[in-house]
Simulated assay, not measured.
Amino acid sequence: MASASPVLSSAPSASWHALKPLWQGNQAVVKQGLPHDQLSPAWQILMLGDGSPTRHLQLLTREPTEVDVIDMSPVDSGGDSAPLPITQVPGPHLRRQVWLRTASGQRLAYATSWWEASHVDEYLENRSLPVWASLARLRTELYRDIQGIEFGHSLALEEAFEQKGPFWGRHYLFWHHGQPLTLIYEVFSPYLIRYLGPMGSRCL
């Protein structure tokens, strides 16, 4: 793998599915991109691009991308073992966990997001919709600020995706009117290889 400064984060928590990282890359790595033998161009567009993953998944599969909400929980002030940019999102925080899947039921990604609890209902009026769809309905102008990328293991995600790891994940801030709105952590299923081709021949 290309060398990179680690993304600083606290220890993984059992309350959400954080990867156990084999490698992490910071914002400098995100900006520069990775060698193509480490992560293929098609996968880099998905992982490092600033477009909507919900929209990308729909275009790839030609099926609507639907959401299964598995958790909406208030979290304590300890940070919830979230990536460090959580400190930029005003608290107290509400954590939302979802599976992103095709309409026919194939799980494609896992996502956790942290919101300011007092304002979450303003932006997620229908909590069963993907974040992108909810914000698009409100015509909310956003900037997706990718903070880091990682490659690692999760037994829980292996079971949920029915795919062997390791997996690629990323985390980013959504900015709105110059303020951080939410922190989102996403992990993508290797099932997407059938649409995007191999991830890369030199994963480690």
Rank of each mutant, 00 (worst) to 15 (best):
P21D: 12
V75S: 10
F167I: 07
N26R: 10
L183V: 03
P64N: 08
P41H: 05
T112K: 00
L183Y: 09
T87H: 08
W23Q: 12
A133K: 08
F167G: 09
D76F: 12
G51S: 13
I86V: 13
W114I: 01
I45E: 15
L19N: 01
G165Q: 11
P92D: 07
P130M: 15
Y195M: 12
L57V: 05
Q147H: 09
M1Q: 07
L57G: 05
S52G: 03
G79F: 15
A133P: 00
V29I: 14
W114K: 01
T87D: 14
P90T: 06
H177G: 02
S81T: 01
F161C: 09
W99P: 00
G25Q: 10
W175R: 08
S134I: 01
G148W: 14
E159Q: 13
Q38H: 11
A2Y: 14
A117D: 13
D76N: 14
D68C: 04
I86P: 03
V30K: 10
D80E: 09
Y110M: 02
L100Q: 03
S154Y: 07
R95G: 06
I184H: 04
K31S: 11
A136M: 05
D50M: 10
Q106P: 01
M72P: 04
D80P: 02
P74Y: 10
R101C: 11
G33M: 13
